[in-house]
């Protein structure tokens, strides 16, 4: 029963090999989908290209549905799957910084690396900027420690807070996603920028 890395005696090299293969697949798919172009990513904010939100929302929902089916058939132990811990204030501050960096740089960390791999100069600068930021964060951590650890909520799940069963919450999220895909396609027509999209 998965996750396989928690099976006793599972060799670390195999764990790392699988992680490597998944990483290669992820990077390849990102690049193939055109995510290494910052104009495509920025299109999300201006509305002429909503591929980003469609891709990430689809990925999240497919994983959500898939993991629950696997759990039901006894293939995956969901209680062992990592749930990110929630620090309210740190999440808000971090989200704002990440969003600002995303729209200015035109990449999120993963797509930045994907663009770097095909030799984009702006991605190299973006990557150096990211490393500098990580370095500054580590060095200034004692000063922002209070903020970083403030209002800790533990690994919470939205459906648990709302008191819904996982399945019902999934259905609601799917309905929201379907509505959003529809809105996104309308937006793409309304804010169409053929001069940019033809070059992508």
């Amino acid at each position: 029963m998965g996750p396989i890395s928690s099976v006793p005696g599972f060799p670390e090299w195999l764990d790392l090999t699988i992680a490597f293969l998944i990483g290669v697949g992820f990077g390849f798919a990102l690049e193939q989908a055109g995510f290494s172009s910052s104009r495509k990513l920025a299109g999300m904010f201006y509305g002429y290209d909503t591929t980003v939100i469609k891709v990430f929302f689809t990925a999240a929902i497919v994983a959500l549905v898939g993991s629950q089916f696997m759990s039901y058939f006894g293939l995956l132990d969901l209680s062992k799957v990592f749930v990110n811990e929630y620090y309210v204030k740190a999440s808000i501050v971090g989200g704002v910084i990440m969003g600002a960096g995303f729209i200015m740089g035109g990449f999120c960390p993963g797509t930045g690396l994907s663009a770097l791999s095909i030799g984009k100069i702006d991605a190299m600068v973006f990557f150096i900027g990211g490393l500098t930021g990580a370095f500054l964060f580590a060095e200034s951590f004692p000063f922002i420690q209070n903020l970083a650890n403030d209002s800790y909520k533990g690994p919470v799940k939205i459906n648990e807070i709302m008191g819904l069963s996982t399945g019902v919450f999934t259905l609601i999220l799917i309905v929201v996603a379907i509505a959003m895909f529809w809105v996104a396609e309308i937006a793409e027509k309304k804010f169409a920028r053929p001069d940019i999209t033809s070059q992508l």
Partner: peptide, 14 residues
Amino acid sequence: LGSFGLILAFLPSP
């Protein structure tokens, strides 16, 4: 996804 969601909504919480 809609039909899978419907099936899931009837299953017990994992």
